Computed example of a mutant assay.
Amino acid sequence: MRVTEKGQVTIPKEIRDRLGIGPGSEVDFVPDRQGVRIVVADGEAVEDRRAASIRAWADNVSGILDLGGMTADEYFEWIRGPRDDLCPR
């Protein structure tokens, strides 16, 4: 992105759409260790929205895998087969 003589930048359409930024929206640029974050007027940072999206997905799919009483270790062994890098049990 190039900064204009007036100090303006254009936020790419894909990002505006993803964040719900439209004409008249308020945004802020917040410096952090990696550079800068765009913060939408409601104060929710881009990373917060992404984390919320992942949490919503996880909530949506939680509980749909029935392991039939198997522990996680038993399930992984069932999926992968016995590990040959460990001593036999």
Score class of each variant (00 low, 15 high):
Ala52Lys: 07
Arg55Phe: 12
Gly81Trp: 04
Ile21Gln: 12
Leu65Phe: 09
Arg49Asn: 02
Gly81Leu: 00
Val46His: 08
Ser62Tyr: 06
Gly7His: 06
Ile15Phe: 15
Gly69Asp: 09
Val27Pro: 14
Val40Lys: 15
Thr71Leu: 03
Ala41Gln: 12
Glu74Gly: 02
Val40Phe: 12
Arg49Asp: 06
Ala56Pro: 03
Val40Ser: 14
Ile54Thr: 13
Pro82Cys: 05
Ile15Cys: 13
Gly68Arg: 00
Arg89Lys: 00
Glu26Thr: 13
Arg89Gln: 01
Leu86Gly: 00
Arg55Asn: 13
Asp84Leu: 07
Arg50Ser: 09
Ile11Val: 15
Glu44Gln: 14
Asn60Ala: 09
Gly81Glu: 02
Met1Ser: 11
Gly35Val: 09
Ser25Asp: 14
Asp59Val: 10
Leu67Asn: 05
Ile15Gln: 15
Arg55Ala: 15
Val9Ala: 13
Pro31Arg: 11
Glu47Phe: 02
Val3His: 06
Phe29Tyr: 08
Glu5Thr: 05
Asp85Trp: 01
Arg55Asp: 15
Arg80Met: 08
Asp28Phe: 12
Glu44Ala: 11
Ala51Thr: 13
Ala41Thr: 04
Asp84Thr: 03
Asp66Lys: 02
Met70Tyr: 10
Arg50Tyr: 14
Asp73Glu: 08
Ala51Leu: 13
Asp59Cys: 01
Val30Arg: 13
Ile54Ser: 02
Ala52His: 08
Ala56Gln: 04
Asp66His: 00
Asp32Ala: 00
Val3Gln: 06
Glu74Gln: 12
Asp59Met: 07
Pro23Val: 13
Glu26Tyr: 10
Arg49Leu: 07
Arg37Tyr: 02
Gly20Ile: 14
Lys6His: 05
Asp17Arg: 14
Thr71Gln: 07
Gly24Ala: 13
Leu67Tyr: 00
Gly35Trp: 02
Gly68Trp: 00
Lys6Cys: 07
Ser25Val: 03
Gly69Met: 06
Val27Gly: 13
Gly63Ala: 05
Glu14Met: 08
Pro23His: 14
Arg49His: 02
Asp48Cys: 02
Asn60Leu: 09
Val39Asn: 08
Glu14Cys: 00
Asp42Ser: 02
Trp57Met: 10
Arg83Cys: 09
Pro23Asn: 15
Arg83Leu: 08
Thr71Asp: 07
Leu86Glu: 06
Ile21Asn: 14
Val46Phe: 09
Arg89Asn: 02
Lys6Leu: 08
Arg80Thr: 01
Val61Thr: 11
Phe76Thr: 06
Gly7Cys: 07
Pro88Val: 03
Val30Glu: 15
Trp78Tyr: 04
Glu47Asn: 07
Ile21Phe: 11
Ala52Glu: 07
Gly7Pro: 06
Arg83Gly: 09
Ile79Asn: 05
Phe29Ala: 13
Leu65Ile: 14
Arg2Asn: 06
Ala72Glu: 07
Arg37Ala: 11
